[in-house]
C-alpha cells in the first residue's frame, strides 16, 4: 500500500488563556488516503474544528500547535516556513466553512474572486482563468454558470453560496479538502445535493476529504472512515460501518443510542447523562468517565489508544454487543 496522503500523528494544540494554558486537542492521530472521506465527529468544544484549523496552519495566537506531526504527502507541514505553507494553502489543501460568508467577499463579483484565487497560485491568462472558474461552477451544479459568474454573493441562496465556496476550494484540484460543518445550516434537500457533489468529487478526482460535523447520520452515509472526538481526543476511530454498526466506546454507543431513529417512537430516548465538560477543567483521566455508566477507578488514568475489534479505541471498558461490560 502506498503512503497515505495525509498522516496526522499525536497532534496537540494549546491555547493560552487567563486561566493558564489549555490543551484543546491532545494526541490526535489519523490518516487519509486519496479519494477517501474521513468523518470527524464530535459535539461543541470537542476540538474537531481546531483539528481542521491546525492542519491548515491557521491557528492564531494565543493558540499554538505544540506537538505532533502533520505529514502531507510525506512532508511535515509544521516544519514548513510560512511562505511555503502559504503556497500550499488554497492550492493543495483547501477548506470550506459552515458559513460561506467566511469565504466570499460580499463586495466582489464571483468571477473576480475566483479569477483572483487562480492567479494567486498559477500564471495563466485571465480568460483561461475565467473559463476554469466557469467550469468549476458548473461542476458543483450551479445552473447557467456563465451568467452566474457576474453575480455577487448576496444574489445566491444559502445552498448556492455554499456551492460557490466549494467551487473556489476546488479551483486548484486540491489533494485535501477540509470541510467544517458545511451543510449544517442548510435544508435537508439542499444538504443532500451538496453531499452528492462532494461524494462525486472525492471519487472522480481523488480528493481526500475531512468532513467535520456533529451529525453522525451524515457521516454514516458519506464517509469511509470515522473518528469520534470527545474533549479534544479521538476516542474511537475506524471504518465507518464498523464504528457505526458496532460502537465500542461508551460515548459513541451513547450518542448513537440517543438518536431518535434508534428509539421506539414516542418513548423516552436513551440519554447520556450530564453535559460536556469545559475544556479548561477536564476531569482527571478519561474525560468521559463522569458521564459514563461503565466508569471504574481505572478510568482516573487516561486510557491509551489501543487496537480493539478492528478499530482504534481509547477505553478500558469497551461496549460489547450493545451493552457495556
Amino acid at each position: 500500500m502506498s503512503n497515505p496522503m495525509l498522516e496526522v500523528r499525536n497532534l496537540r494544540t494549546e491555547f493560552g488563556s487567563e486561566a493558564g494554558r489549555v490543551t484543546v486537542i491532545n494526541d490526535v492521530s489519523f490518516s487519509l488516503e486519496r479519494g477517501k472521506i474521513l468523518g470527524l465527529v464530535g459535539e461543541s468544544g470537542s476540538g474537531k474544528s481546531v483539528t481542521g484549523f491546525s492542519i491548515m496552519g491557521l491557528i492564531d495566537p494565543p493558540g499554538e500547535v505544540t506537538g505532533g506531526e502533520i505529514l502531507f504527502n510525506g512532508q511535515d507541514l509544521r516544519q514548513l516556513p510560512e511562505h511555503q505553507m502559504r503556497s500550499l494553502r488554497g492550492n493543495r489543501i483547501a477548506m470550506i466553512f459552515q458559513d460561506p460568508a467566511m469565504t466570499l467577499n460580499p463586495v466582489l463579483r464571483i468571477d473576480t474572486q475566483m479569477i483572483e484565487t487562480i492567479l494567486a497560485h498559477e500564471t495563466v491568462s485571465k480568460s483561461v482563468a475565467r473559463d476554469r472558474a466557469r467550469d468549476a461552477l458548473g461542476m458543483v451544479g450551479i445552473p447557467s454558470p456563465e451568467e452566474r459568474l457576474h453575480a455577487y454573493p448576496h444574489q445566491f441562496s444559502g445552498g448556492m453560496r455554499q456551492r460557490v465556496a466549494i467551487a473556489i476550494a476546488l479551483l486548484h484540484s486540491p489533494d485535501l479538502l477540509i470541510a467544517d460543518e458545511p451543510t449544517t445550516a442548510l435544508d435537508v434537500t439542499i444538504q443532500a445535493q451538496i453531499l452528492a457533489v462532494v461524494q462525486r468529487l472525492a471519487r472522480e478526482r481523488g480528493t481526500g476529504l475531512i468532513w467535520i460535523t456533529h451529525d453522525l447520520s451524515v457521516v454514516a452515509g458519506l464517509a469511509d472512515h470515522v473518528a469520534v472526538m470527545y474533549a479534544g481526543r479521538i476516542v474511537e476511530y475506524g471504518d465507518v460501518g464498523t464504528v457505526i454498526n458496532r460502537p465500542r466506546h461508551p460515548y459513541t454507543n451513547g450518542l448513537i443510542g440517543s438518536l431518535p431513529s434508534n428509539n421506539q417512537r414516542g418513548t423516552r430516548l436513551r440519554q447520556i447523562a450530564g453535559s460536556t465538560p469545559a475544556i479548561a477543567q477536564l476531569p482527571q483521566g478519561c474525560a468521559f468517565h463522569p458521564r459514563c455508566t461503565q466508569a471504574s477507578d481505572a478510568c482516573l488514568i487516561m486510557p491509551p489508544q489501543t487496537e480493539y475489534d478492528g478499530r482504534r479505541l481509547r477505553c478500558f471498558h469497551p461496549v460489547t454487543n450493545g451493552k457495556a461490560t
Binding site: 448556492m160 444538504q191 451524515v218 469511509d224 460501518g241 431513529s261
Partner: peptide
Amino acid sequence: EIPRLDTTRRQYSAISGE
C-alpha cells in the same frame, strides 16, 4: 433525503432545484 445511520456509504441523489 434524511441522512440515516443505517445506510452507510449511500449514494446521494438529491431532488433537483432550489
